[in-house]
Write a protein that binds this DNA or RNA. Structure first.
Lengths: 208, 208, 208, 208
DNA sequence: CACTAACCGAGACGGTACGTCGAGTCTTAAC
DNA sequence: GTTAAGACTCGACGTACCGTCTCGGTTAGTG
């Protein structure tokens, strides 16, 4: 995943010494967190102590792999991210963008996912390295998908040549985040993605 | 403000007895938090214990007014919100929207402000009542300003008659939030507001 | 007792501020330790965590008063020491010495007492200040009683004029310690004190 | 030595198979402990983990030989005990006893020796088997030397015929222990042994 | 000479206790 | 009845060792 295996792992240069780290323990920890989140345990209730108890693991085994709760949660989020897939047909820019936003919407709906998003956003100030790491390996990967779609649209002539790609990505991602994370309680109608893409494509100005 | 003065205050019906609450203490607490935030103290370092020490106040004095750190922070955010003003001339929808977004951008740049935003966002799951309270008295007030502008634009014929107002608000607010809170580190060029409004008005579709 | 009230207690100079320390908590802690010792809990099983649980007290409340388990145990020992009394009639040196040794023997037989003795002896190297404090306020007090008895014996002519008082104290205390602490399992016959005193008085040399 | 080679050693009945235990490792461990003790490391700081690190040995290598820290320390003490020798000429009871006590005094002065004594004393309650083992193989051996000297004195008529040998041993050993272990800080004058023996022989009673 | 069982250092494992910190509540004297 | 101060119980923090287990890699004998 590129996020895990960062903390105190042995350097691949020298030969592996001592008992290797248990993959079973690692899985038990991450799945323990997911299980707790699915049970509606909030982030502040998600103590390292409790995760260890749930996973049937010593606290030290957690701290051996991650520097603390935050780093662990980033990896759990990465685990969820692994399930993120987009079915972009490439037939039209409109279709691809809608497919992408639908995928984002589904992710946001996943149990615990938005709570985790919140946490990583929260940690941005406290732990800049963590935030940067997360953004480079998760956020940027997603944004790149959109950039590719948009650039192809410009090349094909479907989108205006002077389009500000970065700004457009923000205009697609931003509203989706507002709905799924900030105003989680607000309903997200099924055709939200389509309406958002259309609004972006057609513009708000009256054309009489 | 509507947010403060909620917790454990004596009912105005019966006569006030004993020593009245010190307004000086209240100011000292809120300004203590602001001072700490300006000094780069992160939210997790912002303990009630530390706030009390900084403000030269007993912990009980804080708990007498607010239910906990979260409620206190909402009031501090409301304090900041009080400085939020928009100079909307009413001359054109474009100008008003740009003026509004510029005001949002300035708020986001305020020291500690985005950290507080993060916190309230974070608390959404843990403390739904708090989130709701915050949204109704701060967020909705802001959104109402935009709705008014947009509806006036529709009436004037500047905006298309079938415009989805709520969605459009999200498309203006969302990207701004992404910049000022999520990707705080990304540069926010001076003309960002104008470019965002224009992109929204004109649409992305190529018009040959 | 002179041993307690050492750790982090407020200086009597300035006025007492804040909630005073709970004497009930203090009693609960010390009596909790005594209760555990009586239940046959060994010193290494006597964790701070367990004492806190038994006494129904937070760990911090213990650490607020004592620097750690060792200091606490010295105070518990002092508590036991408070029950140490000798019924010396002053009629004869022999009688007084026997009475004293009997008192020592009873103390050693007290549940938990010898375990505590062991601990303090043990800590001698690790924590010299603690050991010194203990010796000055407990051990020396006891030895002084014996010195007085012995000096009175010399004045009366019951004991030889050139008697080495310190050495004689050691010769009385040492064997008793060997029996009650070191070789706890060895039987201590009822007339042990008398035989010890007589052996000391009469000497081992054959007198034909 | 009689103490070592107890733990998990292969039964001599069946043929020895596999790699034999490294004597070098064993020496490294014991000398590691002695080295640490000489460096002023206290018993509570003397963790198995640290001993293993110091000796350049895996923890399992220690646990393969001894059941834990306590058993290891008994063996280290036995190592020291090996240096205990008495030069008893047999010419007079007085001379032999003094020679013996001098040997004890020298042992007590050895670096780390008294700390180890303390430890074994300490463990008496927690680990009775250990204490018994230690007493039978170290303490009793020493005491037997004294019993022999005393009985010879009685036979020769140097000592009174009704002498309580056990009690007399205690009266010789006890004061020496008090000085070298309990009151380690008290000076032990060169002629202490002689004065102690003389006091025991002559008695305290005034003989006018 | 190959086999193989038990050793070796290293270090991860599930635990327990450590001593500290903060949460939110309670109890003083002072005003 | 408030105030600042500082106690209280509770529970999580992150660390250190415990005694055990598991690696890859020796190091004898035996077959």
């Amino acid at each position: 995943m590129g996020l895990r295996e960062r903390h105190g792992e042995h350097t691949p240069g020298r030969p592996a010494r001592g008992r290797p780290r248990s993959e079973a323990a690692e899985r038990a920890i991450i799945e323990g967190v997911l299980h707790l989140l699915e049970d509606g345990v909030s982030i502040s209730e998600l103590t390292v102590e409790r995760v260890a108890r749930t996973a049937g693991v010593g606290k030290a085994t957690i701290y051996r792999r991650w520097g603390g709760k935050d780093e662990l949660l980033v990896d759990v989020l990465a685990e969820l991210e692994g399930t993120f897939t987009v079915e972009a047909t490439g037939e039209s820019v409109r279709g691809d963008l809608i497919a992408y936003l639908e995928a984002v919407r589904e992710m946001g709906g996943t149990k615990g996912s938005s709570a985790l998003w919140r946490t990583v956003i929260m940690q941005g100030r406290d732990n800049p390295k963590l935030a940067e790491l997360y953004h480079h390996s998760v956020v940027e990967r997603r944004r790149d998908l959109m950039r590719t779609v948009l650039r192809r649209g410009i090349e094909r002539g479907e989108l205006r040549a002077d389009l500000d790609v970065e700004l457009t990505v923000d205009m697609l991602v931003g509203p989706m985040l507002v709905r799924t994370i900030l105003h989680e309680w607000r309903p997200t109608p099924d055709d939200l993605s389509a309406r958002l893409v259309d609004a972006l494509l057609e513009g708000a100005r009256s054309r009489t």
